[in-house]
Design a protein around this nucleic acid. Structure first.
Lengths: 332, 332
DNA sequence: CATTTGTGTGGAAACGTTACCACTTGACGG
DNA sequence: CCGTCAAGTGGTAACGTTTCCACACAAATG
């Protein structure tokens, strides 16, 4: 990689052994006498030898790299997911390459191909909804894939995630128990995200017949949350509760409610989804659904490495999330 | 990389030409007759041939990969910076690998080494404050490095960023012009971030003698912002303004002020730093300093590629930020 | 004592490209 | 008609590892 870089051959000469032997001690493997091992280690040290990952990759046909593509990076649980994956991978001696898709199928496809081109041996994707051509390409190349942030046993690839449907149902029931019968739902682009669709389905199927849901679609941003809230409050009768299918959307709702002079949660209950870092600090503190992001991330990373190392099949896992009741929801 | 992967040799045989010729057409370079080119392209297509990046890297000693390590990913301008760098790099035919340091020198050092191990040929770091051993390692290996998010002509490596000092001075003067004389400053760990130190210095040196600054240090989070605000409001006389050296800190301040029943901005002016996506949507809309993140990111990516390609020296650049006055600041 | 079994070591062929050099054409100018 | 040149093409040695195979030698076995 560099002018000053030494190769295994330099080390071999320095230690007066064969390249084979150097290779052996560098890999800690095989039978090498302690004396020889010591000699080699000393020589390597002296020459500042670093094995060429490129050469290793070429001959072993292994890059020890996994790719993950997430819909967003900012204001989302995905950044903590990435962090956990990176940590796990690193512990296992693997590398991580990432890309963001902005929740767009075409961008995701492009990103995934890019990650593959970078040498990713396995892919962790979000949701189960992907470009068919991409999936078939992954299939023929026999690339291990895991779908995360979702739970769907019928998906083309194993899912390691959580039950968006069930969680959303918990959310709507919480609101119903408080007496809310007219609820505004603020969500991101549903056609681009099966996670969102699942949540919406959970809301719809989880609610009782007496409850009315009003849907407002926008981006996953505070701005969209504010706008959705504005539109919701123009309706009559006004909804008594708002649920943002992302905390950042809920935050926008809080901003807008504040701006309209409402008293929270008395005038309007607001719920989020994600339990982001600031959610607890919010005013009012945000009632939300905690997602098992870290556990999920770790499990996914471990599973894909296991698949890569020993080719053992990836077992789908569904982690539990939980309702966190705080101050932003109150009786209707 | 895969069982089904074809090599350049397969293509050569299929097209009935030499590997050299295939190589030439794959690189679009050199003289190849249109007929031959066509033949080769067709063969490559037919065999689903993808050149092995690993092999190319081995022989060319080029990975076309640059690494960037950022202090944080979430709630920060860094995620948009990453996004812009990735885009630029991608346009230039380069790859990006990233790591996050949590603003810790040791973690940054580990991350940087990891990125190097992954094959990064150049590094983009945040701030100018880094582990001396790392820097010397980069020096001997002759790795191009750019420091971003800061402006410091005296730094060991070229800086492409903005003037934290000057921007902070603008901030404090804005508050002074509104009549604020007692200002609470909420900031992240200053010993771990020269960007923060620069901002603090800008505040201190920019203020007039009649103004008092109260400093509260914490993490870069809403929670820390809230706590700092709480402590600040216990002082007497109470500060009439709060400036968070990150928008997320300012957000925490807003939450806490709301919680204490203050009317914003009448009872307390609040300023941020970053102009994150939700800052405009905030209630009250947040007065903050907009940072030239995207321009900076693009410039850094372009500069490091130029350095890698043609070895032309990296010219330091200082981009302008700007004060965005919104509703969260008012006369004292 | 002859044979087998380990144990430690080295030689050299891959891995999939690029890049240097050499070669074959046919065209062109003198 | 010969020499020169350019365009197009191919042969092959790298690049830095791993891994298969072979081998030397000592210890254990019959």
């Amino acid at each position: 990689m560099n002018v000053t870089d030494k190769t295994i051959r330099h080390v071999a000469r320095e230690a007066n052994v064969s390249v084979t032997t150097v290779s052996r001690v560098m890999n800690g493997s095989e039978k090498v006498s302690p004396a020889t091992r010591e000699k080699v280690l000393k020589a390597a040290e002296k020459l500042h030898f670093t094995p060429s990952r490129t050469a290793i990759a070429l001959v072993t046909k292994r890059t020890r790299t996994v790719g993950v593509v997430v819909p967003y990076l900012d204001n989302s649980i995905f950044s903590s997911m990435i962090h956990e994956i990176e940590q796990t991978l690193s512990e296992l001696g693997y590398f991580l390459v990432i890309a963001v898709s902005n929740n767009r199928i075409e961008e995701e496809t492009k990103s995934a191909d890019r990650l593959l081109a970078m040498g990713a041996e396995g892919l962790i994707l979000s949701g189960a909804d992907h470009d068919a051509a991409l999936l078939s390409r992954l299939g023929v190349r026999n690339i291990p894939v895991i779908f995360t942030s979702i739970w769907n046993e019928a998906a083309e690839y194993p899912t390691i995630g959580y039950d968006n449907f069930g969680l959303a149902r918990i959310a709507v029931r919480h609101l119903e128990k408080l007496g809310h019968r007219s609820i505004a739902v603020l969500h991101g682009p549903s056609d681009r995200s099966d996670r969102t669709r699942e949540r919406i389905r959970g809301l719809v199927e989880g609610k009782s017949d007496r409850t009315t849901l009003l849907f407002f679609e926008g981006e996953v941003s505070a701005e969209a949350g504010a706008r959705g809230t504005r539109r919701a409050l123009e309706r009559s009768p006004k909804p008594t509760a708002v649920i943002g299918l992302s905390d950042i959307i809920a935050l926008g709702a809080i901003f807008e409610a504040n701006r309209q002079g409402l008293t929270l949660p008395a005038d309007l209950s607001i719920m989020g989804f994600d339990n982001l870092e600031w959610s607890e600090e919010c005013c009012p503190r945000l009632t939300t659904l905690e997602l098992p992001t870290r556990r999920m991330a770790r499990a996914a990373a471990e599973a894909i490495v296991a698949k890569l190392e020993t080719d053992q099949p990836i077992a789908p896992i569904c982690f539990d999330g939980s309702l966190i009741i705080r101050e932003s929801t109150a009786p209707a």
